[in-house]
Design a protein around this nucleic acid. Sequence first.
DNA 1: ATCGTTAGTTCCGAAGTTCCGAACTATGGG
DNA 2: CCCATAGTTCGGAACTTCGGAACTAACGAT
Lengths: 112, 112
Amino acid sequence: MRPLFHPAIEDVRPEAILHALADPARAAIFARIATAGCVEACTVLSTVGDRVIPKSSLSSHFKVLREAGLIRSERRGVEMRNESRCAEVDARFPGLLAAIMSAYAVRSDPAA
Amino acid sequence: MRPLFHPAIEDVRPEAILHALADPARAAIFARIATAGCVEACTVLSTVGDRVIPKSSLSSHFKVLREAGLIRSERRGVEMRNESRCAEVDARFPGLLAAIMSAYAVRSDPAA
DNA sequence: ATCGTTAGTTCCGAAGTTCCGAACTATGGG
DNA sequence: CCCATAGTTCGGAACTTCGGAACTAACGAT
């Protein structure tokens, strides 16, 4: 298993963030990591909404989020700890994550 | 030639906007339409940075922006007028476009 | 009217990306 | 040591993107 790659915050590119969050499943995973105490293992969230996501797909979603600079992942024994890099990303691209997350919230809002 | 499709603002989905703007070339085209008096024809901007974009690719970039709800295009004789739908999009997803555009500006900022 | 020019679209093949099941690797417990 | 669990990698099918060539549509000049 190759080591986990995390870009330095100054190497994080906006197109990678937009690409990562342009997938609603990935955006939902990220939202859960960002809100749920900033730590969540992989198979804890093997469903998004009512949709089951296969392990291999989940693994690559995490990889995309990690390589976009949105989360930091660490192997802890047999499982993985993921925490969001919201604070760092927000310092570099102020307001970006908040605006994206609230855009998704608008869409799922029945009043919208 | 089939007619140009524009989604109603309430049908605009955040993932479509993120996907459209996740491509730096498309984001640059959109930025030019949004800032340059909100009207710009296609071949006026056949280059992005120092990169030449073929007509067929340009045409599909415009289509992606249009169908994401970011621009409104109208055939005016032999050419096309494009105007941004910033105001509508901003009313639905407040701050989203501004945050994305300033994220790209950070990236191209030599001090970043 | 018809020709030429300019603006943009469509078609289609090549190249690249995404999805997901199956096989694999790594860690920890009994 | 063997098993179970957590996650990764592989590989093929389905989908997307890119760009050149052929096409269409509008306008002006003759």
